[in-house]
């Protein structure tokens, strides 16, 4: 008897689907982009957004005392008066932390999205999932205008997390409420040097 794999592949070939037309990508690849649009779109998700010029200064208003800081977070972000939790951290420690401070890989102005790829200042995925409060620092030059532009900047084989606002659900009467399993508060600091 043929394996399931061989049989399914044979069934597909027997279906004799004709070759498709070439894909026409007539949609926009670019967009207006920019800090202002990004900030506006993030705020639409009921996330907290601040456009700042100095990160350590802005971090003085951090809520919480015990904050996770992934590897690669710049030294000057680790301000005094906060207990910075560093890896290795257990699931329980993450669950009990007050929040997490990260950078990001890319952001998208069109959709108000931040994307984490586990790289510098982001850490493994659990770090930004278990603490109830996520502060994400986005540099102006990390903001892509559109979804196509953002995907082009990303390395697909890294573990990616696209975040658009705090966790939410529309499962009750299809009206959106914020705050389910993921962080209930998302704070985005957009660094604009100008």
């Amino acid at each position: 008897m043929a394996s399931a794999r061989e049989e399914i592949l044979a069934r597909i070939r027997n279906a004799k689907v004709p070759a498709a037309q070439p894909v026409v990508r007539g949609y926009h690849r670019e967009g207006p982009g920019g800090v202002e649009l990004f900030a506006e779109r993030v705020a639409d998700y009921r996330a907290v957004v601040h456009v700042v010029s100095n990160v350590p200064e802005a971090l003085t208003s951090l809520r919480g005392k015990r904050i996770v800081a992934p590897a690669g977070v710049p030294e000057e972000w680790l301000i005094e008066g906060v207990t910075w939790l560093r890896e290795p951290l257990s699931i329980e420690e993450l669950d009990q932390a007050d929040g997490v401070l990260t950078g990001c890989a890319v952001a998208i102005a069109d959709t108000g999205t931040i994307v984490l790829d586990g790289g510098e200042a982001q850490g493994r995925r659990a770090l930004t999932l278990l603490p109830d409060y996520h502060v994400c620092v986005v540099r102006a030059d990390q903001i892509a205008a559109s979804v196509p532009e953002a995907l082009q900047r990303l390395e697909p084989t890294r573990p990616l997390t696209f975040i658009s606002g705090p966790s939410a659900t529309s499962d009750i009467e299809l009206s959106r409420v914020e705050g389910v399993h993921g962080p209930r508060t998302l704070e985005v600091l957009v660094v604009d040097q100008q």
Binding site: D44, D110, G112, R124, P156, P159, L160, T161, S167, R176
Partner: peptide, 29 residues
């Protein structure tokens, strides 16, 4: 599809979370 799906299904510019993974990443997940 990341533009078509969220707007069509939950009417959002983007859904809150999209996860992408490729096989196994040592030390993560």
């Amino acid at each position: 599809f990341l533009q078509l799906l969220p707007r069509s299904s939950t009417a959002e510019r983007m859904n809150p979370y999209t996860s992408v993974w490729t096989g196994v990443t040592p030390g993560d997940g």
